[in-house]
Amino acid sequence: MEIIQIVGLCLVTTILVVLIREDRPEIALQMSIVVGIIIFLRMIDQILAVVEALRDLSQKANINNLYISIVFKIIGIAYIAEFGSQICKDAGSSSIASKIELAAKIFIIVLSFPILMAVMDLILQILP
């Protein structure tokens, strides 16, 4: 039932955004930001359930907790960067959006270094 509310809210908001866009484009942009935030805040408890389930799975498979937290960090960075760059693209400034994506990629690479090192060590151990 939740999805029906969300889709209804988005349709109403889109109509309002189109209504306001030709007079006050800046307020229309802020409305699209607000509706994105509202939907994410509604989905928080579902996301938390998924995060907890993944963490329990990794506990059972006794994967090192560090790697799982890195994966969650990367997911968080990717979500925030995607949110920001979509808003900037929506506003028409796609150059700023690509800067956000560039920064996010760099953060993710930096974050994933420990995992890369661990894989390298593993491979070196396997090779004779």
């Binding site: 802020q30 994410f40 960090k73 968080g76």
Partner: peptide, 21 residues
């Protein structure tokens, strides 16, 4: 803008706590 900034800070703090960012 003031309303939107409050909502944005709420979003960022919730994402921060959720993904341990």
């Amino acid at each position: 803008l003031m309303m939107v900034i409050q909502l944005i800070s709420q979003l960022f703090s919730s994402v921060k706590t959720m993904f341990q960012l």
